[in-house]
């Protein structure tokens, strides 16, 4: 049961971070379907730091652990934001179709990460054609054991981000302006708010959060990541979480915990007596989050609370 809680929390954190990213972007008026790709790039950033910064858990003091954590954090965020610029440039400045661009980013993220990791591995060892990075040791830097419970620091980050996002969206000048751009960009423009700038910022923040979600995902339970696999649709699950959470941070958090639990079942059902006795094939557990999200979407999409202007490129000339 402790294990179920632990996995639920970590997967919920992934979904929460990424869904918050989607939420901020959509509040600014841009639908971010490229979250999956952003996650992959964020994961790549963090994994590269863990691969190349020397670290040994046996000798590392608290300061070194913090340093490692910060470096991983920054690398993920940086790559996530950099990659999200692809969406911002295309959809805000060039008014490209956000669905096409988002889809392309997902494919590009996985392809790019695979090429980078493979050529890196091959360069180091000519016989190594894998797309894997292993980070067993450095990962320990940001894991703390509380009794049997293993706490990944990124869970704490997710909670902090939740609070920050809520305050940012609903209590600050920036949030008011951002939401105005997603609801009624012409109104925002008429009072002198730069809609393009706000949308760029919205997408960049989603890159920040998506990147964090990516690194959290690949450090959840495993210590080796094969980049060819991408992030298994988590970017889209996060969008389902966001829709279920009606674009509101706290409701998103609730939805993330629910979905996180279904995902966690796939990791731990073997350890839970009655589930093990049911003898359901493991593939069913793997499918569970996707099936649940389809059902949830079917019931929640009818009365959508989506920002009114999302997905519509803003054109100053057209009023």
């Amino acid at each position: 049961m402790v294990l179920l809680l632990q996995y639920t929390l970590i997967f919920a954190s992934v979904l929460l971070l990424v869904a918050l990213g989607g939420c901020v972007s959509e509040h600014s008026g841009v639908i971010n379907l490229g979250l999956e790709g952003i996650m992959v790039m964020g994961a790549l950033g963090g994994a590269l730091v863990m691969r190349f910064v020397p670290y040994s858990s046996a000798t590392a003091g608290f300061g070194e652990r913090i340093l490692m954590f910060l470096l991983v954090f920054l690398a993920s965020v940086a790559l996530g934001m950099l990659f999200s610029m692809l969406l911002a440039v295309a959809s805000v400045s060039f008014k490209a179709d956000q669905t096409i661009v988002g889809t392309a980013m997902n494919l590009l993220g996985t392809a790019l990460a695979t090429v980078v990791v493979k050529s890196m591995n091959t360069a180091i060892n000519p016989n190594d054609h894998s797309s894997e990075i292993s980070y067993i040791e450095p990962k320990k830097a940001f894991l703390s054991n509380i009794g049997k419970f293993e706490l990944n620091w990124f869970v704490v980050v997710a909670v902090v981000m939740l609070v920050i996002c809520f305050i940012m969206l609903y209590k600050t000048r920036f949030g008011l302006r951002l939401r105005a751009c997603g609801e009624h960009p012409q109104a925002a423009d008429s009072v002198g708010i730069n809609v393009y700038k706000m949308r760029y910022l919205g997408v960049l923040i989603s890159g920040f959060l998506g990147g964090l979600g990516g690194i959290t995902y690949i450090t959840a339970g495993v210590s080796v990541w094969k980049f060819e696999n991408g992030v298994a649709g988590f970017g889209f699950l996060a969008l389902a979480v966001m829709i279920f959470g009606a674009w509101h941070p706290f409701k998103i958090a609730g939805a993330a915990v629910l979905f996180g639990m279904f995902r966690a079942l796939g990791n731990v059902y073997n350890g839970i007596g009655f589930l093990k006795d049911l003898k359901i094939p493991s593939a069913v557990y793997l499918m569970l989050p996707y099936i649940v999200s389809l059902i949830v979407l079917a019931f929640t999409s009818k009365n959508s609370k989506a920002p009114k202007a999302e997905g519509i490129p803003y054109d100053k000339g057209q009023r």
């Binding site: 939401r179 009624h184 009072v191």
Partner: peptide
């Protein structure tokens, strides 16, 4: 040019 889901006050101070 009013944001429909904002309050009157939020609309007035926007910007």
């Amino acid at each position: 040019k009013l944001v429909e889901c904002f309050s009157v006050l939020d609309n007035i101070i926007l910007g």
